[in-house]
Design a protein around this nucleic acid. Structure first.
Length: 137
DNA sequence: GCCAACGTTGGC
DNA sequence: GCCAACGTTGGC
């Protein structure tokens, strides 16, 4: 199983919104970046991810699960853009901030630091474990 | 609100 | 296929 990180602006669609969708989850549409799309293409049902709030908060706030693999993005007719569906699994007992990630020596190679603009990022097993520690899990 | 970093577009 | 111009993202 692989791990991921999904970035979102809480003003537009945040953790609370995803929780409100319940088990039916939400189509992660609107991604218009090839790297981010390519990451979604290789996701498998059951993969887990972090939900990260950019701009407001700048912290990972919850764990999400991939519930539908890659399919066309219903918000566009452009066939280049595809997406997955995700649902909220559980909130992190302690949100993990960008500042924490940056100051943790073992996390300096996380895409969140090295490629901060990428909206859907891979997270390694090792990174996941460390983030879970920081989150209190 | 500024600006650095990065991706995309389009002229050549 | 290169690269300048432009737009967007996201931290500060």
């Amino acid at each position: 199983m692989a791990y991921w990180l999904f970035k979102t602006e809480p003003d537009v669609f945040g953790w609370d919104d995803l929780v409100a969708r319940g088990d039916q989850g939400e189509e992660w549409d609107g991604v218009r970046n090839y790297q981010a799309r390519n990451n979604m293409r290789v996701m498998k049902k059951g993969d887990l991810g972090l939900l990260y709030h950019s701009n407001q908060g700048k912290e990972a706030v919850g764990i999400v699960e991939v519930i539908a693999e890659i399919h066309p993005d219903s918000t566009t007719d452009d066939t280049r853009w595809e997406c997955v569906d995700i649902k909220a699994v559980q909130p992190l007992p302690r949100a993990v901030s960008l500042a924490q990630v940056k100051s943790e020596p073992r996390l300096t190679s996380m895409a969140l630091v090295s490629n901060s603009r990428l909206s859907v990022q891979p997270v390694t097993d090792q990174e996941w474990k460390i983030v879970m520690e920081l989150a209190g899990l």
